[in-house]
């Protein structure tokens, strides 16, 4: 040893990871604590109502474990068919519309004016939630799955074209350059240089969106846009937890299937 071991410090403190100044750090902790106390304080809970609900909660758990598919099967199957058809049609329409918008929103290949128009469409579609869009579409188009279809298509456009545009912006420039150098037209450029590079991910994202749309289709029924959500809403309103459990299990099951098969397709595509 170079030095005697006792000459070295006996303690060591790890330097703080965030906010090196101690006063700042402590005041932030204090602020967070203050917020927490205030926030908990404003959650005023009716404990007797909660206690009363424990029994219903237990019935829900039992209903979930022993679901009743039969007594409401007519409603369930009607809602399910609406949800599934709505999911598929809206995903297809949404993607078909999202492709041109996504291409238009890619900075590296779209003209400036087109770029801004497409980006605004994306921003509009993404900032409004499905439920809010559904409320508006129901008000305009009346109750039923058509409003739901429009809602999900609209949401799909924002989601898909944003990701597609980002993908196109990330593509390998050298390949676009090479194709451009051959004097090809803009359409040929898209066809030869862009499409092969983004196609596998586009298919993967489409399947992912299909999954999301199905899950959303189970929700927008609550505001009258058709689908299994309406059936679920009724079942819960009537405290028919065993039917509600059955619907939830069906939803979980379908989501599991889409997830599993989309993983399979994605591997096949790549």
């Amino acid at each position: 040893m170079v030095d005697k071991i006792s000459s070295f410090p006996k303690t060591w403190k790890r330097p703080p990871v965030f906010f090196e100044s101690a006063p700042l750090r402590y005041s932030l902790y204090a602020l967070a604590l203050l917020w927490f106390v205030l926030a908990i304080g404003t959650v005023d809970v009716n404990w007797s109502r909660v206690a009363e609900g424990m029994d219903r909660g237990w019935r829900f758990v039992k209903g979930f474990l022993t679901p009743d598919f039969t007594s409401r099967w007519k409603d369930i199957s009607a809602g399910l068919i609406e949800s599934l058809t709505m999911t598929l049609t809206s995903t297809v329409v949404g993607i078909v519309l999202a492709v041109p918008i996504g291409i238009g929103a890619a900075r590296n290949i779209a003209p400036k004016a087109v770029y801004y128009v497409c980006r605004s469409i994306i921003a509009l579609s993404r900032s409004l939630q499905e439920i809010i869009i559904a409320i508006l579409f129901v008000a305009m188009f009346g109750f039923g799955p058509f409003a739901g279809f429009l809602t999900l298509s609209f949401a799909t456009i924002g989601f898909m074209s944003k990701l597609l545009a980002e993908d196109i912006e990330d593509i390998d420039e050298s390949q676009t350059e090479a194709i451009r150098a051959t004097g090809s037209s803009w359409l040929q450029l898209i066809n030869y240089a862009v499409q092969p590079q983004v196609m596998p991910r586009l298919i993967g994202l489409s399947l992912y969106r299909l999954d999301i749309n199905f899950r959303e289709s189970a929700v927008i029924g609550i505001v009258g846009a058709g689908g299994i959500g309406a059936t679920l809403n009724t079942a819960i309103d009537r405290y028919e937890f065993d039917s509600a459990g059955a619907i939830l299990l069906i939803i979980i099951f379908i989501v599991m299937i889409t997830e599993y098969s989309s993983g399979y397709v994605r591997r096949w595509v790549q």
């Binding site: 609900g53 219903r56 909660g57 829900f60 439920i131 899950r215 959303e216 189970a218 929700v219 609550i222 959500g229 679920l232 809403n233 819960i236 309103d237 405290y239 509600a244 939830l248 939803i251 979980i252 989501v255 599991m256």
Partner: peptide, 14 residues
């Protein structure tokens, strides 16, 4: 699989 709005629906009822 279950959207927060559906969870909320259930919990409000419970």
């Amino acid at each position: 699989s279950i959207n927060s709005l559906i969870w909320a629906l259930l919990l409000v009822s419970i």
